[in-house]
Design a protein around this nucleic acid. Sequence first.
DNA 1: TTAAGACTTAGAGTATGCTCTAGGTCAAGC
DNA 2: GCTTGACCTAGAGCATACTCTAAGTCTTAA
Lengths: 130, 130
Amino acid sequence: MGYTIGQVAKKTGLSVHTLRYYEKEGLLPFIKKNSAGLRVFSDSDLGWLELIECLKATGLHLKGIKQYIDWYIEGDSTLQQRLDMFKQQKIRVEQQMAELQKHMNKINYKIELYTKAVKEGTLHPEKETA
Amino acid sequence: MGYTIGQVAKKTGLSVHTLRYYEKEGLLPFIKKNSAGLRVFSDSDLGWLELIECLKATGLHLKGIKQYIDWYIEGDSTLQQRLDMFKQQKIRVEQQMAELQKHMNKINYKIELYTKAVKEGTLHPEKETA
DNA sequence: TTAAGACTTAGAGTATGCTCTAGGTCAAGC
DNA sequence: GCTTGACCTAGAGCATACTCTAAGTCTTAA
């Protein structure tokens, strides 16, 4: 039930460097080291990495993620802060989804436009810029 | 039908510095300058800025955006490349949407979990890590 | 006519998030 | 015993995308 840093790198797609960097930044405070000083990642550590990815991908910086982890370590006195953070994050994701849909519409329009243009061999720039 | 750089900054939320930076990087090659050397942004330039934002927000780097603009300038011989780029971008957006939905699920789960925990005054860490 | 305020260029500086290097330890296999 | 390969630390270096500074111009209004 323990993984080396190399195994975790393969599993997650993160580099060994990045994993060490995350630990240095306080994002992986639960990793054990064995007698030889080697990191031993547990399944729970993999869970933390998943959460880090989730928060990062939804717009939180490493600092914000560290804040959450610090709250987690602090214990039950920070439950409300953590809940608020996830609620805030939810709002962000909803905004991101709406934005993404708008961008998708624009891209679909461009695909239509360029599909026609490729067929005709020319784009009429007086009708379409950008 | 012309805007100063300051007006465009206000309209778009980008900084004056960023607008000049974009121009320097070749992302705004159609901006005119008046006799005093001041930039005069047209509505078409605002359109380009919208497209830049769209491509940036969907994962293209400024280099990739510049590539598109260079193709645009090159003319009809690059119609296929431009179409392919938008198609590629569409695939990316679809992936991003799927990812975002997964993250949303995780966040919703956390909100449920922490809502309960706040009510009860404690989170049971043996059941939930990260 | 002079001061404010928005603009100009060239180029330096910064924040974020890696990414790599140097120099070293340790365990396994030939 | 020696090499290989994965690991270690500390710290330097890098890419991206800004962000700011210095020094100067131009327009407008008191």
